[in-house]
């Protein structure tokens, strides 16, 4: 396993108390595949990405657990050791490409800075590499002379992918890389990511709130809810035979462009506070299938099929629950 997260806990200090943004998270990312990390706002998916890069905001800190990457525990590395692997072994693509790009510098200068200062290349080699990187992401190398504001949204996102790949990392974390883009550009950027993943045999974590993006671009998926992974496995298994009611809900929550026109089913309510999370399953308050044990005791994540894990007391009954979950009335709060 290229990356293995075990029992990770990440806390934010806030006036109201300690927010347990990631609270006992396990995640495995195999080499050479795209893993989708899906969940709603505040579930901890972006915090996980920032923790892996060790670029948490000031109020955040890793409070426990392990992040094993290429034989080392990133959670415990000093900043100097971390700087040696950031960009070189693992890299980051932010949601808003403007956050990765410097608005007052030409793209060429930005690429050269990473390639020479961090990558130690000489200027001519760095220039050749910058041209190669632009071609790889489908940008005309002539555009290296441009400033970011001369690019469209999709071109900026391609440029930020090129920048992330500059020093040939083995793991790329992309935080909502297509959320701000129109459907056509979104599809083109996802195609660039998939193409690069297979050509360079990269591993990628694609953070998104959209199950359809996972279905299109990912090999594996981990579904996060309230700071933890509630279900994980190969995309085909998780989408076709979801074991966790939250995953079942997500698959019925948004319209399909071709499917039947059944009424959509929102998941009513909101996730629990992560300052003082409830003792049992964190989804219990929104779950149409919750029982007494779900409220009282936290279910452990167990494998129910080979390589398909879920944390739900009723995962054994998933086949039956899937049928009920497809009916809108199931989800209407009593």
């Amino acid at each position: 396993m290229l990356l293995s997260v075990r029992g990770l806990r990440v806390n934010y200090a806030s006036r109201a108390g300690v927010v347990r943004a990631v609270d006992g998270m396990d995640l495995d990312v195999p080499a050479g595949s795209i893993t989708g990390l899906v969940g709603e706002s505040g579930c901890g998916k972006s915090t996980l990405g920032r923790s892996l890069m060790r670029v948490l905001p000031e109020a955040g800190r890793i409070a426990g657990g392990q992040v094993m990457f290429e034989g080392r525990d990133i959670a415990a590395l000093g900043e100097a050791a971390m700087r040696a692997i950031r960009w070189r072994r693992l890299a980051f693509i932010p949601q808003t490409a403007m956050n990765a790009l410097d608005p007052v510098q030409r793209l060429r200068a930005q690429m050269l800075e990473v390639l020479t200062e961090r990558g130690g290349l000489r200027r001519t080699a760095a220039l050749a590499r910058a041209v190669e990187l632009f071609r790889m992401v489908g940008l005309d190398p002539v555009r290296l002379a441009d400033f970011p504001h001369q690019f469209s949204g999709g071109m900026r996102q391609r440029a930020s992918i090129a920048l992330a790949l500059a020093l040939a990392p083995v793991l790329v974390i992309a935080d909502e890389p297509v959320t701000a883009l129109d459907v056509i550009v979104q599809r083109q950027v996802l195609d660039v990511l998939r193409d690069l993943q297979s050509r360079l045999n990269l591993a990628m974590i694609l953070v998104t709130h959209d199950m359809a993006v996972v279905a299109y671009a990912c090999d594996r998926v981990a579904v996060m809810y309230a700071g933890r992974v509630v279900e994980a496995g190969p995309v085909a298994d998780v989408l076709e035979r979801p074991l966790h009611p939250y995953t079942m809900g997500l698959t019925h929550a948004f319209p399909d462009v071709h499917g039947d026109m059944a009424a959509l089913v929102p998941i009513e309510g909101s996730p629990p506070s992560l300052i003082d999370p409830p003792p049992g399953c964190r989804f219990a308050a929104r779950c149409p299938f919750a029982q007494a044990r779900c409220v009282a005791h936290d279910p452990a994540a167990l494998a129910y099929a080979s390589d398909h894990v879920a944390a739900c007391w009723r995962a054994d009954e998933a086949a039956e629950l899937r049928g009920l979950a497809a009916t809108p009335s199931t989800w209407i709060a009593a």
Binding site: V183, R187, D210, A212, V213, A215, Y216, E240, T251, V257
Partner: peptide
């Protein structure tokens, strides 16, 4: 525009737009 919309199914069309 129709082909570009991703769907939450595994058997989707991955042909180039």
């Amino acid at each position: 525009l129709v082909a570009a919309v991703p769907v939450a199914r595994v058997d989707q069309n991955r042909a180039a737009l």
